[in-house]
């Protein structure tokens, strides 16, 4: 019983993490053409890294209890240069620095995040069905 509930907790932590990844992806997509930020320069693509969560019990054995967002990192890939002398952000040679966001890659990441979210959701419903069949033993 406890381990089935742990399954549900682990899967829900995965859902939270994937939803956070989707937040970051949507931030990247909406800033795909942002040429000016507070720090100056174009928008820098953000990414997330995940980390496994282990719960250390008193008996010394560590139990897995899901995933969490470890950090948001900034992509150090070079910016996209486009020739557009009339742009206010253009440099002396007439080139504008656009963010290093690749919209296609972001779309692929978005599909991956959605699939992972769905997978976690189906893990939860499987665990729920298992528990319900356990309840039907001896009925």
């Amino acid at each position: 019983m406890d381990s089935l509930f742990r399954t549900i907790n682990v899967a829900s932590s995965g859902m939270t993490a994937e939803r956070f990844r989707l937040d970051v992806i949507s931030q990247n997509l909406s800033n795909a053409d942002t040429t000016k930020t507070e720090n100056g320069g174009p928008y820098v693509r953000k990414g997330v890294t995940f980390q496994e969560v282990l719960n250390n019990t008193l008996s010394g054995t560590s139990q897995f209890s899901g995933v969490k967002v470890n950090e948001i990192f900034e992509d150090d890939a070079p910016f996209r240069l486009e020739y557009d002398p009339s742009h206010p952000e253009a440099n002396e040679e007439g080139y504008v620095e656009y963010p290093n966001v690749n919209v296609l890659n972001e779309m692929i990441d978005m599909i991956t995040a959605q699939r992972a979210y769905d997978l976690n959701a189906s893990v939860i419903s499987t665990a729920k069905n298992m528990y319900n069949s356990a309840l039907n033993i001896g009925k």
Binding site: I8, N9, A11, S12, M15, R19, I124
Partner: peptide, 9 residues
Amino acid sequence: DTENSLMIQ
């Protein structure tokens, strides 16, 4: 998501 899983449990 956490609330949902708590509700199922």
